[in-house]
C-alpha cells in the first residue's frame, strides 16, 4: 500500500512538471528608440538582462527589467536617463504582467512561428497602464522566442520631455523586445 501511494505521488509529481511547462530566461533583450525625427543624435538604448517567464499552459507572461541595466552609446545620455527621466533610484524596476490571450492556438510541441496577442499591465517610472500588443512566439524544440514591438507615450508614464531637448528626444518611445526562453 505504501509503495502504491509513493508511486502514485511520484507519477503525479512528474505529471505536474510536464504540464507546468514554464519557459524562462534572464538574458532577454529590450531596446528602445526615442529619437526625434530631426535629431542629429540617436537616442536609443539596449538592455540584455531582461528576465522573462512564460507559462505555456495558462499563457501568463511576465517581464522584469532593471532600469540601470540599459546601455547607451553616450555615457551622459545614460546618466540623464537614470537621473532625469526614469529616476531609477526611485523606480529601479520596470515590469509587465500579462497574458497571451490566444495561447491555445500555440502548439508548443511543434516548431513554428505563431502570431499572438498579449495584454496586461506595464509598470514604468512608477506608473501602471494597461497595454495590449501583438507579438510572435516562435517554438523551436525546448526554446520559445518571444518578439514584440510597441510604442509608449512618455507622458502617460509621467516622463516629461523639456522643451530644450524636444528637438532630440521624441515624445514617444518605440520599444522592441526579443527574448529566447528555455523550458524549465
Amino acid at each position: 500500500m505504501k509503495k502504491l501511494i509513493l508511486t502514485s505521488c511520484f507519477l503525479l509529481a512528474g505529471a505536474t512538471s510536464i504540464f507546468a511547462q514554464k519557459y524562462m530566461t534572464r538574458t532577454g533583450k529590450i531596446s528602445f528608440s526615442a529619437t526625434a525625427p530631426k535629431s542629429p543624435e540617436k537616442i536609443e538604448a539596449v538592455n540584455n538582462e531582461v528576465a522573462n517567464i512564460l507559462d505555456a499552459k495558462t499563457g501568463d507572461i511576465v517581464f522584469q527589467v532593471l532600469i540601470k541595466s540599459f546601455k547607451f552609446e553616450r555615457e551622459l545620455m545614460k546618466e540623464h536617463f537614470d537621473e532625469n527621466y526614469m529616476e531609477s533610484d526611485k523606480f529601479p524596476k520596470s515590469e509587465f504582467k500579462g497574458n497571451v490571450t490566444d495561447i491555445a492556438q500555440v502548439n508548443f510541441a511543434k516548431d513554428g512561428t505563431y502570431n499572438v496577442k498579449v495584454s496586461g499591465k506595464l509598470t514604468m517610472h512608477g506608473v501602471t497602464k494597461d497595454v495590449a500588443v501583438p507579438g510572435t512566439l516562435t517554438v523551436s524544440g525546448k526554446n520559445v522566442s518571444a518578439k514584440a514591438k510597441f510604442v509608449v507615450v512618455l507622458k502617460d508614464y509621467g516622463i516629461t520631455v523639456p522643451a530644450l531637448v524636444a528637438d532630440k528626444l521624441s515624445k514617444e518611445a518605440t520599444i522592441a523586445l526579443e527574448s529566447t526562453l528555455t523550458q524549465k
Partner: peptide, 14 residues
C-alpha cells in the same frame, strides 16, 4: 496540478 500559476507568482519567481 490544477492550481494555475498566476502572473504574480511568476513575477515572484523573477
Amino acid at each position: 496540478n490544477a492550481a494555475h500559476a498566476q502572473a504574480d507568482s511568476l513575477m515572484n519567481m523573477l
